[in-house]
Nucleic acid binder design. Structure first.
Length: 561
RNA sequence: UGGGGAGUCGUCCAAUGGCAGGACGGCAGACUCUGGAUCUGCUUAUAGGGGUUCGAAUCCUCUCUCCCCAGCCA
């Protein structure tokens, strides 16, 4: 139950650094998102790692927005990211930073490199730069502007900053090594001209630093001890070291780990933004999305997500974590805390023929068998009820031990009932109503004669039930790894057409009338559900967060095969 | 075919020269007023070859496979 203290190669490295007193005993990490989209579960892994490590080692973790590309970044994203990190349960204190806070400093650093002859203004077009860069197997060619005099570089760079040149006309490049096997070292662009409005600095700048130029210096400025990032930045590390060496600046230690992949979904901002923009989902917080806001709306708890992040571990090999593990963590948490309630999703009317008309009984029900402290409640019982349509079969298959003609079952917390007949619709032949009798001696659900029944059904009293809309969700993608596609195939081709099913005539216990948006309940025998923000006093709307484990469904599936 | 990484149960993570272990999943059973929860048991793995060693997942060596890099994205 309680997750052991996670340990991994990163924490081992940090422990080692502490032992050798490499950073005067400090541990200072940071979570550096680009505000160009909403955070997803992969970011949660990074957040839990960075903030978690800081917490465990008595250190600090900064929140820093990598806002170096004004054409893609927006305040809406900044706000959502702050909300999501907070919701996950982490606190950056007074250490909220932006790469844009350091634009002036970065500019001075660039001038310093120019003066050292380590950076130059290049007039090559983007296409030319690509040509000159060479390929994976052939070295690049040096730019004809590579050996411009320092004074000319200084003048041109100042005029780039002053806005004298159009977008794309020139860049500032680091003078490293065009023949390096590491393409990142082939005179990378440090600044590009972009006459774009920045969400924080407005029109103050028209040259913007590239990530590779900004990132290492930002970490250095903030005196980060351990710069934890994903694998693809492993071969950028030599460049970051080169910059810091040339600037004689403080070096954080960069450690790379494998990003999270989750089965049956995609975790790439490019793909997620596509799902949102093309309307395949209803927004970033669509409960089917693997975004933090999507999970929140779906009814996930921060505890479940954090526990999941602890359990998946941290390593350097690519992997795809089964979404079943996330769902397991969720159920484990919700099982402990979610109050139980009865709700009928696909109603079938039941008349108890021998129960007096007009009588209403209040029966006592347990709120959470896992936690007696959560008490009990009263649920109304009467002659006309709804039960789940799938809990009745006219000709029950093998191992189906719910209701069928002539069979006796228990209504949870109520009575034993026996089915005496099914009423059909004359035209369609569909069963529309069940006639049953009850045994008054079994009130509360116990039989004084010790008689057993094989099944216990959930139910609601028809005259007291509240109507509700319930949205059932399934995996967004049918394929386990939608990202792995063949030639010319689109990841959206494996979108699950049944990822959402909306049921509008569901009935829930009257006690749910005032349920607050976001509140979570277990609908007994079915799953965990939470109140969607679309819910109003008029219509209750629930999202199915996750189903309960369903043994019968498995048996039935096996029987069909 | 340059450079950088990675290969352990179906999946994820351990084992840091000394009995390959845990979790999830799956299967079987016990229990149960949720076919839930809980409990018990079972299942299956060191990419391949050679070498060092009393002993190798771990060290050496060759091979194979997979991932990342040729944005004025991050």
């Amino acid at each position: 139950m309680a997750p052991e203290k996670p340990s991994d190669f990163i924490r081992e490295i940090i422990t080692g650094d502490l032992e050798t007193n490499k950073y005067e005993g400090r541990v200072h990490t940071r979570f550096p998102p680009e505000p160009n989209g909403y955070l997803h579960i992969g970011h949660a892994k990074s957040i839990c790692l960075n903030f978690g490590i800081a917490g465990e080692f008595g250190g600090l973790c900064n929140l820093r927005f990598d806002d170096t590309n004004p054409t893609k970044e927006e305040v809406e994203y900044v706000e959502s990211i702050k909300e999501d990190v907070r919701w996950l349960g982490f606190d950056w204190g007074d250490r909220l930073f932006y790469a844009s806070d350091y634009f002036a400093q970065l500019y001075r650093f660039a001038v310093e490199l120019i003066q050292k002859g380590k950076a130059y203004v290049c007039d090559l077009t983007a296409d030319q730069i690509r040509e000159y860069r060479g390929t994976l197997t052939t070295p690049g060619k040096e730019s004809p502007y590579r050996n411009r005099p320092v004074e000319e570089n200084l003048d041109l760079f100042a005029r780039m900053k002053a806005g004298e040149f159009p977008d794309g006309s020139r860049t500032l490049r680091a003078k490293v090594d065009m023949a390096s096997g590491n393409i990142n070292m082939r005179d990378p662009v440090m600044y590009r001209i972009l006459h774009a409005e920045h969400h924080r600095t407005g029109d103050q700048w028209c040259i913007y630093p590239m990530y590779d130029w900004a990132h290492g210096q930002c970490d250095s400025i903030e005196c980060i001890t351990h710069s934890i990032c994903t694998l693809e930045f492993e071969d950028h590390r030599p460049l970051y070291d080169w910059f810091l060496d040339e600037l004689r600046a403080y070096h954080p230690r960069q450690i790379e780990f494998a990003r999270l992949n989750l089965s049956h979904t995609v975790l790439s901002k490019r793909k997620l933004i596509q799902l949102v923009r093309e309307g395949h989902v209803r927004g970033w917080d669509d409960p089917r999305m693997p975004t933090i806001s999507g999970f929140r709306r779906r009814g996930y708890t921060p505890e479940a997500i954090r526990n999941f992040c602890d359990r998946i571990g941290v390593a350097k090999r690519d992997s795809v974590v089964d979404i079943a593990l996330l769902e397991h963590c969720l159920r484990e948490d919700l099982n402990r805390r979610a109050p139980r309630v009865m709700a009928v999703l696909r109603p079938l009317r039941v008349i108890i023929d021998n129960y007096p008309e007009g009588v209403v009984e209040e029966l006592e029900a347990t709120n959470n068998p896992e936690d007696p402290g959560m008490g009990t409640r009263k649920v109304p019982f009467s002659r006309v009820l709804y039960i789940e349509r799938e809990d009745f079969r006219e000709t029950p298959p093998k191992e189906f031990y719910r209701l069928a003609p002539g069979r006796e079952v228990r209504l949870r917390y109520a009575y034993f009932i026996t089915c005496t007949g099914a009423v059909r619709d004359e035209k369609t032949g569909e069963v529309v109503e069940l006639r049953c009798t009850y045994d008054p001696a079994t009130r509360g659900g116990d039989s004084p004669d010790g008689r057993k029944v094989k099944a216990t059904l959930h139910w609601v009293s028809a005259p007291h039930a509240l109507q509700a809309e319930v949205r059932l969700y399934d995996h967004l993608f049918v394929k386990e790894d939608p990202g792995a596609m063949g030639e010319g195939e689109d990841f959206k081709s494996s979108l699950n057409p049944k990822s959402i099913e909306t049921l509008t005539s569901c009935f829930v216990e009257p006690g749910l009338k005032a349920a607050a948006a976001g509140s979570r309940h277990q609908f007994e025998r079915q799953g965990y559900f939470c109140v969607d923000p679309d819910s109003s006093g008029e219509t209750l709307v629930f999202n199915r967060t996750v189903t309960l484990r369903d043994t019968w469904a498995k048996i039935e599936k096996a029987q069909k095969r």
